[in-house]
Amino acid sequence: MSQPMVSRGFRGRQRSVEANLPPGQYLTNDFPVLSAGPTPRTQLAKWDFTIVGTTLVQPKRWTWDEFQALPRVTIQADIHCVTRWSKLGTRWEGVALDTLLARVQHQARFVIAYCDGGYSTNLPLNEVLGGKAWVVDSYEGAPLAPEHGGPARLLVPHRYFWKSTKWVRGLELSVDDRPGFWESLGYHNDGDPWREQRYQGD
């Protein structure tokens, strides 16, 4: 077998990029927009974020201004779309789910994020606690654009990017798991890019 003639430096760079890419992914510098419907445009004055659930002692609601007053963090993360593009080192700002969920008492084990546009996604609680998931409203130092999920989207970088649902408006805390918009239509319930869990049965 013949080896292609490449310089040592080039191969070194390739290896370091590939080390950050889950199996079957390619690197992009673009930020592709995937649309399964019209882009919701909720005015900030009408926007709120709620946490509900049957085991909740008291449901919780934040207006946009109240949400802005919560403790904020900046996040730098690699994101991996199930359609095979990955984008490294994206920068976001928002509120950790730890911060939001610390303000409610419940006995749930699953989170179902619900969104404008009728979208939803499901995650086990232990996959979103411990600094692993955020509600973000800023991307690369600017307010998050509507086509990328603004005013606010979920950010769960260790799962395929469809679970970082756009236009998030709240969390339902549930005792039982319940597949979301894509998880109920053939996509994997967990969606771990490093285990290449794209579709059900992967």
Partner: peptide, 23 residues
């Protein structure tokens, strides 16, 4: 969308048919 195709009602935008082609 590359993730799947959604056919929506022209009157109210509700998804009527959703199709995903997996492996």
């Amino acid at each position: 969308s590359p993730m799947g195709t959604v056919l929506r009602c022209p009157a109210c935008e509700q998804p009527l048919v959703r199709v995903v082609r997996t492996s």
